[in-house]
Amino acid sequence: MNQLKLDQLAKGQRGRICKVEGEDGIAIRLMEMGLMNGEVVEYVGCAPFGQPSTYLTRGFRLALRPEESRRIEIEPIS
């Protein structure tokens, strides 16, 4: 399967998380928020100046900056 970073999803597109990079505070925080392997994420859209972006996962909306979303590898779901 072709893998993408979370910030490469197209608007409205969904993906399944296959990896969260790193073991630092940022990675922990992302995982605590439920961004873990196997979860489905949908890209909702981005804020006026191009970032941060909004995602939908586990039934809630989450805003992430590109630095953070780039750490998440996903497998797009068609």
Binding site: D24, G25, M33, P52, T54, R61, L62, A63, L64, R65
Partner: peptide, 11 residues
């Protein structure tokens, strides 16, 4: 120190 992540919930 360690950069704090920007992870914000939009209720």
């Amino acid at each position: 120190g360690e950069a704090s992540p920007f992870v914000m919930e939009l209720p």
